[in-house]
């Protein structure tokens, strides 16, 4: 009797042991699968957003720097940049078409440097149908749909350029103005600032105002014509990088006997060369890299739903021969191309 009881007890224990051993075998297996599933957490890459960057002009140092800034931000915020620009800045219609095309493509944000304040305004209004953020850089555009403007205070920039020329000319003499496009908001603003400043100096006389439509060759021609027409012309202000380039080339090639004071805007490498060679007396420089970078950054922020500033005015610096190679200016003026 006793032995049979013990036998049954042993049977029970064996059963239990078997169950435990089985569980011990199964458990690590289950754990393994659970953990291997856990280990390879596939961070599903959020779908890469596509931003359109529409600028005024293709193959231009200034806009290339803007593009570099935009691409630095694109890398940081994991977005793709579709870069669109007409061959020539004066080709406003082409820019309008590119902008429309970008909207139809279904980009997630539009970053625009408008060649024409009014013409691009209508296109930007369309962007509200697509419900995407629009960031305007460099030049403002006539639309209430723009969420943020990043650029220079153009009026102030015009004043600064004028101030530098007045300084170089010791407050007297005939000056010429090389603007770029009639209708571009920043061109008008720069002119306004420039003229307002000149009007304060009785000694300064504006001999001529020309529009080069951001064509360096036209600017070159116009400058030579201007110099020929006004033999007593002593100073020229160029209001953007392209016109500056044309003016600098023309002044360099013109009669070496004449001392023409030139004040330019922007800091492309070629302009810096003219500055070092003293063809250009002073350059008022903006920060195109920051414009491109911030344009993309704010567009990304806007899509994230965070608040972005309505207006960011990037700094303006006056660069002359004396300070162009200061370490901090080197960093600003010369893109770090690897």
């Amino acid at each position: 009797m006793l032995s049979s009881y013990a036998g049954q007890g042993r049977g029970l224990k064996v059963k239990l042991l078997r169950a435990i051993v089985l569980l011990l075998i199964i458990m690590p297996l289950a754990l393994n699968t659970a953990c291997s599933g856990n280990g390879i957490i596939e961070i599903s890459e959020p779908e890469q957003r596509n931003f359109a960057l529409v600028v005024k002009m293709l193959n231009d140092d200034y806009w290339n720097t803007v593009r570099m800034g935009a691409e630095a931000a694109a890398k940081e915020f994991n977005v793709k940049i579709t870069f669109l620009a007409p061959e020539h800045e004066k080709d406003v219609q082409q820019q309008v078409e590119y902008t429309e095309q970008a909207l139809k493509l279904g980009v997630d944000a539009l970053i625009l440097a408008a060649s024409d304040y009014m013409a691009l305004g209508q296109v930007v209004d369309q962007a509200s149908y697509y419900n995407i953020p629009v960031i305007s850089i460099d030049s403002e555009v006539g639309s209430t749909k723009v969420q943020s403007y990043i650029g220079t205070n153009s009026y102030q920039m015009g004043r600064t350029a004028g101030q530098e020329l007045v300084k170089l000319m010791n407050g007297r003499g005939k000056v010429g103005v090389m603007s770029f496009i009639q209708g571009a908001h920043n061109a008008e603003q720069r002119e306004e600032g420039l003229m307002d400043l000149f009007s304060r100096y009785d000694g300064i006389e504006v001999a001529e105002k020309a529009y080069c439509y951001s064509d360096p060759d036209l600017a070159y021609e116009l400058t030579l014509r201007m110099l020929a027409k006004h033999p007593d012309l002593e100073g020229i202000v160029a209001l953007n990088s392209i016109s500056s380039l044309g003016v600098a080339r023309a002044v360099k090639d013109a009669d070496a006997g004449r001392a023409i004071r030139v004040v330019t805007i922007d800091s492309t490498p070629e302009l810096m060369g003219y500055l070092q060679d003293e063809v250009i007396g002073a350059a008022v420089v903006q920060n195109p890299f920051a414009m491109g970078y911030l344009g993309v950054k704010y567009a990304a922020d806007a899509l994230q739903g965070s608040d972005i500033p309505e207006r960011v005015e990037t700094d303006v610096k006056v660069i002359g021969l004396n300070n162009m190679f200061w370490p901090e200016n080197q960093k600003l003026l010369f893109p770090f191309v690897k």
């Binding site: 570099m68 800034g69 630095a72 940081e76 920060n287 890299f289 920051a290 970078y293 911030l294 370490p327 960093k331 600003l332 893109p335 770090f336």
Partner: peptide, 16 residues
């Protein structure tokens, strides 16, 4: 303390 190499060198140079 001057940067020789930095992946975001240009951003730092531009004060961003």
């Amino acid at each position: 303390g001057n940067l020789v190499y930095h992946p975001q060198q240009q951003l730092i140079y531009n004060g961003l």
